[in-house]
Write a protein that binds this DNA or RNA. Structure first.
Lengths: 124, 124
DNA sequence: AACTTGTTATACTAATAGTATAACAAGTAT
DNA sequence: ATACTTGTTATACTATTAGTATAACAAGTT
């Protein structure tokens, strides 16, 4: 799986890593049980510091996307707390959709885009 | 309109202000043409520094939600670039929905929540 | 024994968030 | 005219975060 960092982005590097790994899981580029590169290898590949990768992995573990094991390394493992996930989604969506509504994006248009993106997931 | 700052949040104060004002516009608590408090008044009310409010106002102006005028102060005024808005929405949604999909939230469930939130807007 | 894994500790730089004063230019109100 | 309010800009300072750089440790593999 290709990880691409934008060093000019206002988004922190470890957040970019986190988001891309989550997107990779959603699109089946990363499968449950699969190993991620070691923090040192990934840091080397992307051209950043080991601790920045470690920060991303630690957050992904805390958010329930990874298990970290000294022997196996970082393994994709989803821990589902659906109530929590729905709550977070509502909070995130409230901001995104308020922006959209102010810019005259309709409920129907929002649904279309949601369908598009879910399409990206199902096809991988 | 009530603005509530969470000083323990990991979200920056000026981002909290921005998001709440956008939500206020979407829910018609703030109408187009209406004045916001002056940067000094709002800072006083909320208990923060003038420049933090100014930062939020400047961003809201830049993102097309406000007009700033030395005589009238800050006035709600939506500048719509729909293509840009849709592009931003897609990028935001891609992250939010990838998280949701990993946590077994279905497309149907996502649609229900979108409807809920649009309901908040139409009723004010 | 050598190597790799995540993990922790320490130290440093750079950037950002927030506060604190102060002043300026343009406009309003008295 | 004078006083006041508006956004705006400048400067300076503190605290926090992001990111880098080394180094070492514990647990496990080869």
């Amino acid at each position: 799986m290709y990880l691409q960092i934008d060093f000019n982005s206002d988004e922190a590097i470890y957040i970019q890593l986190r988001n891309q790994i989550i997107y990779g899981i959603a699109t089946s580029q990363l499968q449950v049980g699969e190993n991620l590169p070691s923090v040192r290898d990934l840091a080397e590949d992307v051209g950043i510091n080991m601790h920045t990768v470690n920060k991303a992995y630690t957050i992904l573990k805390q958010e329930g996307y990874l298990k970290l094991d000294r022997r196996k390394g970082a393994v994709i493992a989803i821990d589902i707390d659906k109530l929590q996930a729905i709550k977070e989604m509502r909070e995130d969506l409230r901001v995104v959709l308020a922006k959209a509504f102010c810019k005259n994006i309709s409920c129907v248009e929002a649904h279309e885009i949601v369908n598009d993106i879910f399409g990206e997931f199902e096809r991988g």
